[in-house]
Design a protein around this nucleic acid. Structure first.
Lengths: 351, 351
DNA sequence: CTCCAGATTTGGATCGTTCTAAATCAGGCA
DNA sequence: TGCCTGATTTAGAACGATCCAAATCTGGAG
């Protein structure tokens, strides 16, 4: 099969330089928008760039500059809409800044995380945004990425202790304050017997969310029964299955603060199976405000984390760090917003 | 702030070569697993690589080989769970093959697509997987990526005509057959007045899906009223807002084949707002089988496209192409499966 | 004129691999 | 021993931009 376009050799800086009688160095300066070059020269060079159809070869530049113009984005789970939105936000800002996003997906496996980080680091990314897999360990991550590449931790804490010379930035949600708001909201609606439902207590985010709940209950002088604190995997299925545990003993709760939206949606299922009408007989709140939250029946009162905005923010924090490599490590805790919908009804006669 | 780890110069091939008394070339061969090197030598070099903690510098390799080990993945929309799953599938296979995914997100804007492609191409990706933005034009895309880099088109056709020398592979869903199945299913359930709802008619996938619907209606001898064909952006919000258009004139439809799941979920909202009970008073089907489809109220009858599998498939097709650059361009059409759930009820008295 | 400062421009080395062609080595055979 | 063959190894030139220090240019002051 013959191609009918001439396979012309790639145009390089030298071609442009030769084409308009200046040196490679000058062309390079023009390309990078340096103020050093004369107006007249710049115009001439730019014209020649257009004329020859030059395309910049970032691979060459990367080699010389010893760092690529890529930002590695390593996620524990891309299929989750929360992280998909997050990724979209990251990519927006990364792209605007002239970088490119190197994607890696670990599927919650620390082993895969090691492999992915190892592979990405070979490309010399300018920085890394990492949402760790469950049970991912700080020293392992450090071993994989080295101490030179700036890294921003998103969403979760790492297990193990962080060697003090790896000054990583962090961006996490204000989990504790969020569930505190949710709990206070339920209390304000008139609930007195409120459960905390779902999640695994050995995950940092679950501990924080539980703390916010406990704090609000305590502040209101409300007791917490042991069987109101039910752990389960943060999935719909597990949550539905664990629902009976809430009602295993008297007094039964009239409301529940759930670990996240997935758990809350599972609880909705579980309540329906018991013949309870969530949003009328039983109040509940979620966390994350995933797209389904506003569409479920009943629409879910939840804490909005605005994942796309978080993605943009993560990228901006990392770019900031690239600009000031020596600045103190930052820990940014972003507030979450209580979105009140119909699932957080007042207590009913029935409950 | 002082770091307490020595900032040691990066280890290079030369360091390894020097460290065990062979030439750089030999070490390079070892790294690439060439069969040319002697067992004994290979072992010695590998030991030294470990000892010095060498990390491969792909930027240098990329420059020399004139193509990077990146696969560009350019998506019209990442927030849509369908594409998020697709991306996850692509990344799996790309990673397994030792490549890295370069992500780019166009948000349905051809202008942004140009920018994203332009930026990615500078990194010399080995190949490109592109799910075009709406109204994206073949010649524009060609201008941005050049004729040298293999490209796989996913999901949509490009506008304009494809210059014959750009032999691009394609992977698309069997849209027409899918909606035909859905429509036939609704007809079998007893519906006679069926609408086609959502999407923009100038997108190829929408045209194909509409064709499948029209085909089934015609085959069954059923008429189609003009106001049963409602266009809107393929988002929940737009679909909810356009719902009244379906009922703007008599006779009202009793069922709708929706452009995709997002639209169907929006229609669910819109119907609820009108006091109609989807899955009881009105039947509807979606397309894609995103995760929310089976959890919505009512669970959605839809066409499963298995996006993660499609992602894996897309990556495999592209890798195949890298292995055989001269092979004939392939157009792969993947069948979709009708998943019957509760949204596609029989017509009720009410409707 | 000559000199100087500031504005531009430039040659040449450099980044760390891969590639090519040629060199070297080991062992068998005459 | 000397030659030949196949198996290994290697020197050195790429790849294409960036960096640095030094060269050149300009125009105004003395």
């Amino acid at each position: 099969m013959e191609s009918n376009t001439p396979i012309r050799r790639k145009i390089t800086l030298s071609d442009i330089a030769a084409g308009c009688g200046v040196s490679r160095a000058t062309v390079s300066l023009v390309l990078r928008g340096s103020p050093l070059v004369n107006r007249k020269t710049r115009a001439r060079v730019e014209e020649e760039l257009r004329r020859q159809g030059y395309v910049y070869n970032r691979m060459a530049a990367n080699l010389r500059r010893r760092t690529s113009s890529g930002i590695a984005l390593v996620l524990n789970e891309l299929a989750n809409p929360f992280f998909a939105e997050f990724a979209a936000g990251v990519d927006e800002v990364v792209g605007e800044a002239g970088f490119v996003t190197l994607l890696g997906c670990t599927n919650e496996s620390p082993a895969r995380e090691q492999a992915v980080l190892g592979s990405l680091i070979e490309h010399g990314p300018a920085g890394i945004i990492l949402s760790p897999a469950e049970h991912s360990d700080a020293s392992q991550v450090l071993a994989a990425v080295g101490a030179q590449t700036p890294l921003l931790l998103f969403n979760r804490e790492l297990g193990g202790s962080l060697p003090e010379f790896a000054h990583w930035d962090r961006l996490t949600l204000d989990n504790q304050h969020g569930t505190r708001l949710a709990t206070e909201h339920l209390i304000a609606r008139g609930h007195r017997r409120i459960a905390f439902f779902g999640g695994h207590r050995d995950s940092s985010s679950c501990r924080q969310r539980h703390a916010g709940y406990a704090e609000a209950m305590q502040a209101a002088g409300l007791p917490i029964e042991p069987h109101w604190q039910v752990e389960c995997a943060p999935t719909r299925l597990a949550a539905a299955a664990q629902t009976p545990a809430l009602f295993a003993a008297a007094p039964a709760p009239t409301a529940a603060v759930c670990y996240n939206d997935a758990v809350a949606l599972g609880l909705v299922l579980g309540l329906n199976q018991r013949g309870l009408h969530p949003g009328r007989d039983f109040a509940l709140t979620g966390f994350d405000d995933i797209a389904e939250a506003q569409l479920s029946a009943p629409p879910l009162t939840t804490l909005a984390a605005a994942p796309r905005a978080r993605g943009r923010q993560a990228a901006e924090l990392l770019l900031q760090r690239l600009r000031e490599p020596q600045a103190e490590p930052r820990h940014t805790i972003v507030p979450v917003q209580l979105v009140i919908r119909e699932s957080s009804c007042a207590p009913s006669d029935r409950s």
